[in-house]
């Protein structure tokens, strides 16, 4: 025969379980408030994969807004500066199917160059530059800081005298892919089978 039924044990069990629930609920609540992430971590991850040219070719004002839009479900193939590599990286991250690039991929890295003799000092390009890479003042000649320019060509359209060219970027020697020869000069005599 089992234990006799008693209301006391039922009540104590209910009481203990309720107590546990309240305690752990409070703990969880406190933890979620204490360790709350500031922003959506997925947006950060998407943003990190974008090339940060801030060119706006995706239709959003900068890379971060596009990252947010992708997180909301927008297509991942709207970034021409990133090209196929970015699409594949995003597809891997988000578990979506890679789609062909919407638009023309940039054939080479470019940098803006102002033909200084023709510049009239209107400051329109300075206002357009998303990374503050153009210096100058009203009625003074402007020039591009080559190292800061991302090659987004947002400055080209606003220029009233068309004095901005997009030129191929010079690469320093250290950034070349190594020329690897297909010849290994010396090989072991007993290495060939």
């Amino acid at each position: 025969m089992g234990e006799p039924f008693s209301w006391g044990s039922v009540l104590s069990a209910v009481g203990v379980l309720t107590g546990l629930g309240i305690t752990f609920g409070a703990l969880l609540g406190m933890a979620s408030a204490r360790f709350k992430g500031e922003e959506n971590p997925l947006v950060e991850k998407i943003d990190a994969l974008l090339p940060q040219t801030q060119c706006g070719q995706c239709g959003y004002p900068g890379c971060r807004p596009y990252a947010e839009a992708i997180n909301q479900g927008d297509a991942i193939n709207k970034c021409p500066p990133g090209g196929e590599a970015t699409i594949h990286a995003l597809a891997d991250l988000l578990g979506r199917d890679p789609a062909p690039l919407d638009g023309e991929a940039a054939s080479e890295e470019t940098v803006a160059y102002i033909r200084e003799a023709e510049c009239i000092g209107c400051t329109k390009c300075i206002q357009a530059c998303p990374v503050d890479a153009i210096i100058g003042a009203a009625k003074q000649m402007h020039t591009v800081i080559e190292d800061e320019c991302t090659g987004c060509d947002l400055c080209v359209a606003p220029c009233p005298v068309d004095c901005i060219d997009m030129l191929p970027r010079r690469k320093p020697l250290t950034q070349w892919e190594p020329i690897v020869s297909d010849r290994q000069p010396l090989r072991s005599a007993n290495a060939s089978l």
Binding site: D47, L50, P51, Q52, T53, Q54, G62, C63, R64, P130, V131, D132, A133, E148, T150, Q175, E177, P178, V180, S181, D182, Q184
Partner: peptide
């Protein structure tokens, strides 16, 4: 060894690109 050399260079190149993107992002922000 040639595979390793080119892989090393590719990874270094990627790191430079990432650093550049990060820099542009900070300036944009």
């Amino acid at each position: 060894v040639q595979d390793y050399r080119s892989s090393k260079q590719r990874i270094r190149h990627k790191r430079i690109e990432t650093a550049k993107a990060e820099h542009a992002k900070h300036r944009f922000e």
